[in-house]
């Protein structure tokens, strides 16, 4: 049986329940992909059931571990292709193996999950450096960016610590949501493209951007040009949101 779900974590956990109590899952897909694949005929739409989700979650924590429950959530936040089935396979193995599953690095099921998780971690780490803030007219710091994975909440600890006294907004333009933070507290809420565009920059903003760009140009050693290396660390898809790389 193929399952369609609403792309929430609870929705996914509900699918896990159906896998065990209704019929084995052959595929789990987001609702939105149903039309492309003509799945509507062969798939069942799963109604997200919070109680079921909570039960499954508790089972993961008790039978595998809390850490693995978090791990599955991290994988859920990635854009890994077919992540749902990879997560399900991991959980099935986990229910058999218990907490030692995380030690089975060589196992393909574990390896899949591990890789997806690493990619998320890698993007989070990279974005800690690559996100660029601008100062708005009201002296807020605003940063718009387009991450591959759903990373907002994973960025929160780093930036709330860094900007302890500056209120700031981290805007995921791809998912139309933003993290609002001040004084170590934060929350995530919907935030559209237009709302982002309405923000006015402070007077000094342009000057500091120009100053940074000029400095950046100067710092490249002409004798050692190596754009491939630059692109490897700073992928081109991020450039339009990086002050020194955008035009």
């Amino acid at each position: 049986m193929n399952y369609l779900y609403d792309e929430t974590f609870d929705g996914f956990l509900t699918c896990v329940k159906h896998h065990y109590y209704t019929e084995n899952a052959e595929g789990i897909f987001p609702n939105s992909s149903a039309y492309q694949m003509d799945l509507t005929r062969y798939a069942m739409t799963v109604e997200t059931d919070e109680d079921a989700a909570r039960i499954v979650h508790r089972a993961i924590v008790n039978k595998i571990s809390k850490w693995d429950a978090e791990r599955v959530y991290r994988v859920f936040c990635t854009n890994e292709p077919e992540k749902e089935m990879k997560m399900l396979r991991y959980l099935r193995l986990g229910f058999k193996q218990g907490g030692r599953i995380r030690l089975l690095h060589g196992h393909p099921v574990v390896n899949d999950v591990q890789k997806a998780e690493q990619r998320l971690g890698c993007e989070v780490h990279r974005l800690c450096g690559l996100i660029r803030f601008s100062e708005t007219q009201d002296k807020l710091l605003y940063a718009g960016f387009e991450p591959d994975n759903d990373v907002l909440e994973f960025l929160a600890p780093h930036f709330t610590d860094r900007f302890r006294y500056d209120p700031f907004i981290l805007h995921d333009k791809r998912r139309d949501k933003a993290l609002f933070a001040y004084n170590k507290e934060w929350q995530i809420a919907a935030f559209g493209e237009e709302e982002g565009q309405e923000i006015q920059m402070s007077e000094d903003e342009a000057t500091y951007r120009r100053l940074w760009k000029e400095y950046f140009e100067v710092m490249a050693t002409k004798e050692r040009l190596n754009p491939a290396c630059q692109r490897r660390f700073m992928p081109a898809r991020y450039w339009k949101n990086i002050t020194e790389m955008s035009t």
Partner: peptide, 25 residues
């Protein structure tokens, strides 16, 4: 990061990479 023979293991936070591929933090 040693020029063209760059080193990928990066423990600290790097903010940018110059056109010669060096980490700038």
């Amino acid at each position: 990061n040693i020029g063209r023979l760059g080193n990928a293991a990066c423990a600290g936070i790097c903010h940018s990479w110059t056109a010669d591929g060096r980490c700038m933090s």
